[in-house]
């Protein structure tokens, strides 16, 4: 099964994933009409900022076992086995924020949503775009990410790639070069600039 893998070191903080996510979870599915919708579609992925101004795409990790699921009072959080995705039932959700207290990644937000009853504030988080996946599409955040900070792959593929990366440090022939090798440099520059400013 393919899953979204987050590579924070490659994030440039452009926030296109947020826009794509909000659009994918809008009524119309089109950016230009989505911005006029009520309630305004909101992203499930949140680009935060690191200590040195680096970008950080933060989204639900669909933990197993999921702490939010155990903490949910009305039992509104469940696992969709087909997509290995932790889901929130907006009809059952009581907006008590118990899941916010349980989620160690801080990815759950509370607002009105097109999938919830009208005017009801509910807990909202990433659903791995299972609607899109059912149509054969990949999650919207991955599709739009230009820097490969978000990839959609099987765990075996991800593992293999990591192994190759480690192997490359001892043997140059062990695999192809990374898609964009400049991120380490970019992040080092950001860190240095930040330290210079602080001094």
């Amino acid at each position: 099964m393919k899953k979204v893998v987050v590579h924070p070191e490659r994030c440039v903080g452009c926030m296109q994933c947020m826009v794509a996510c909000a659009t994918a979870h809008s009524r119309s599915g089109e950016l230009f009409s989505a911005i006029c919708e009520i309630p305004l579609p909101k992203p499930r992925i949140h680009v935060g900022v690191g200590l040195y101004g680096e970008g950080f795409p933060n989204r639900c990790r669909h933990c197993d076992p999921a702490p939010c699921m155990l903490a949910c009072l009305p039992g509104a959080i469940y696992r969709n086995a087909d997509f290995d995705t932790v889901m929130i039932d907006p009809d059952k959700c009581i907006n008590c924020a118990s899941c916010a207290m349980a989620c160690p990644f801080g990815v759950i937000r509370y607002h009105e949503d097109i999938f919830a009853p009208m005017k009801k504030v509910v807990a909202v988080k990433c659903d791995n775009c299972i609607g899109r996946q059912a149509k054969g599409l990949i999650p919207a955040c991955v599709e739009v990410c230009k820097s490969n900070a978000l990839t959609f792959e099987t765990s075996a593929e991800a593992l293999k790639r990591k192994t190759n990366e480690v192997a490359r440090t001892v043997s140059a022939e062990a695999g192809i070069t990374a898609a964009a090798p400049g991120f380490n440099l970019l992040n080092a520059i950001k860190k240095t600039q930040n330290q210079l400013k602080a001094n």
């Binding site: 899941c99 916010a100 989620c103 160690p104 990644f105 801080g106 509370y110």
Partner: peptide, 10 residues
């Protein structure tokens, strides 16, 4: 602004 509260609890 409690959305990162779970992180602190963790």
């Amino acid at each position: 602004q409690i959305d990162q509260g779970g992180l602190f609890a963790a």
